[in-house]
């Protein structure tokens, strides 16, 4: 395996219940475990099956058993499924070294749809996210997934994008293999197509505010 760029290496995946956070963190964590690392994962989802804020902390070390939560400011990577949730997490966990990738497609909270609150202006959200880490890259994960036939595969697009980031603890080949073990037939083909497009989005540079 690649030698870890940081030890412990800390990664946060954040979004909204139902977007596939838990599967994404589980795939990343079990891949790192199989590569011989000590892994700890903390899932915060509570009762929010759908619609609530959720986050997963994935921590990897070559020497320590770690607590399942990352201390504030210590994330090396943030993978966000939604801009407001990405900002919420970046404010707490981003530091000087943090690389952020996120889907800039807003999912409106109920209070916005009911007209009780306003969703923050998207440009202000993007600017604040970009100001919080070392780099912030937009990946249109839900759009990529929908273009391949299933909106629920946005998590795979983000995993593809993550695996192509500089300093990522594992490469595309390793993740592609794990995905190939999890899915079969047409679903696998669709997921692999989504994965490649996610990776390509990073290689093309996306909309980089770094």
């Amino acid at each position: 395996m690649k030698k870890l760029a940081y030890d412990p290496l800390n990664l946060v995946i954040c979004g909204i219940g139902g977007q596939g956070n838990v599967l994404a963190s589980e795939i990343l964590a079990s891949t790192m475990n199989d590569l011989g690392c000590r892994v700890a994962v903390g899932e915060t989802y509570g009762a929010s099956q759908r619609g609530g804020s959720v986050m997963s902390h994935v921590r990897v070390s070559e020497q320590w058993d770690l607590g399942v939560l990352i201390p504030a400011g210590e994330a090396h990577f943030i993978i966000g499924f939604e801009p407001l949730e990405t900002l919420r997490i970046a404010r707490q966990y981003a530091g000087d070294k943090t690389r952020i990738i996120y889907d800039p497609r807003p999912v409106y909270p109920g209070s916005v749809l009911r007209g009780e609150a306003q969703y923050p202006p998207i440009d202000a959200l993007k600017a604040e996210i970009a100001s919080l880490g070392a780099s912030a890259l937009e990946v249109p994960a839900a759009d990529i997934a929908m273009s391949c036939g299933d909106a629920r595969a946005a998590n795979i697009a983000l995993l593809g994008a993550f695996s192509c980031l500089p300093g990522a603890p594992l490469d595309s080949a390793a993740l592609r293999e794990v995905i190939s073990q999890r899915f079969r037939g047409a679903v696998l083909e669709m997921n692999l197509a989504v994965f490649e497009k996610g990776c390509a989005a990073v290689k093309e540079g996306g909309a980089n505010h770094g």
């Binding site: 909204i16 099956q49 759908r50 619609g51 609530g52 909270p109 109920g110 209070s111 609150a117 969703y119």
Partner: peptide, 16 residues
């Protein structure tokens, strides 16, 4: 410190 201006919360909801 990052901004501590309040961020919109997401309420729990019944599933779609």
């Amino acid at each position: 410190k990052a901004s501590s201006a309040p961020l919109l919360e997401r309420d729990l909801n019944f599933c779609a």
